[in-house]
Simulated scan of single mutants.
Amino acid sequence: MGRVLLNLFTNAFYATQEKSKQSQSQFSGYKPTVTVSTNHLGNSIEIIVKDNGTGIPDAIKDKILQPFFTTKPTGEGTGLGLSLSYDIVVKGHGGTIAIDSKEGEYSEFTIALDLGSA
């Protein structure tokens, strides 16, 4: 799970850094923010990583968990981070990953794990 969180943090920091670069001309007053929260829901837990970066376009939301798919420029991403995270959470721990995002505004990844299988 450490690798999963590291991948989500790395992507969130990248997205906020990219938006910061754009903010010089478009988003004056932009303050990069990455939040992590947890919820205990009876017999399961949620880990939520949210950023206010560039967001994920609707057209690629279904692809970002696939191996070798990356939105980063050549040489900056392998396309393995989120697919490995998916495998660890879903196949390794029987959990789920939900993605909520609005292009240009935010991305939120919610990991849900059953306490019996975590």
Rank of each mutant, 00 (worst) to 15 (best):
Y86Q: 05
L41N: 09
S83I: 00
K61A: 02
E76Q: 15
Y106T: 01
S28R: 15
A59G: 05
A12D: 03
I64R: 03
L82W: 03
V36L: 14
F13C: 10
F109L: 08
A59K: 11
G2A: 06
D62N: 11
Q26P: 04
Q17L: 13
K102P: 07
T16L: 06
H40N: 15
L113G: 01
T74K: 14
I99Q: 05
M1L: 04
S107F: 06
I99G: 03
V4N: 01
L113M: 05
L80A: 06
T78I: 07
D114M: 10
K61Y: 01
S107H: 07
F68P: 08
E103Y: 09
Q66I: 07
G79F: 02
T16I: 09
N52I: 13
V36G: 10
S44P: 12
N39S: 09
I99W: 03
G79I: 02
E105I: 13
N43K: 08
K102I: 06
E108Q: 09
S101T: 01
S83F: 00
K19I: 15
N7V: 01
V49M: 05
Y86T: 06
I97F: 03
I45N: 04
Q66N: 09
S83E: 02
Y86F: 00
G2V: 06
G29A: 11
G42T: 11
L80P: 02
G95H: 07
N11Q: 08
P67Y: 08
H93C: 15
D100G: 00
G42H: 12
I48C: 04
N11S: 08
T35H: 11
T110C: 13
E18V: 14
G104F: 05
K61F: 01
A12V: 01
L80F: 10
F69I: 07
K63S: 07
Y30T: 08
S101R: 00
D51T: 06
L8C: 01
I111P: 00
P67N: 09
G77M: 04
N11T: 10
Q24K: 15
D87S: 15
G92L: 06
T78W: 05
E18R: 15
T33A: 13
P32S: 13
P32T: 13
T78Y: 07
N43S: 07
V49N: 03
T74H: 14
V89F: 01
G77Q: 05
T110E: 11
I47D: 00
L5A: 00
A112Y: 06
A118M: 09
L80T: 10
E108F: 00
V49K: 02
V34E: 05
S117R: 09
D58P: 14
S101E: 00
L41P: 01
S20H: 15
Q26R: 14
G75E: 11
K61L: 04
L65N: 10
N7L: 00
T54L: 09
I64G: 02
N11M: 05
H93F: 15
E46S: 12
L41G: 00
Q17A: 13
G92T: 10
L8D: 02
S85L: 03
G75P: 07
K91Y: 12
G94C: 12
G81K: 02
H40T: 15
S28P: 13
L65Q: 06
G53I: 08
L65S: 07
D62F: 07
I56Q: 04
E18K: 14
D62G: 12
V90T: 10
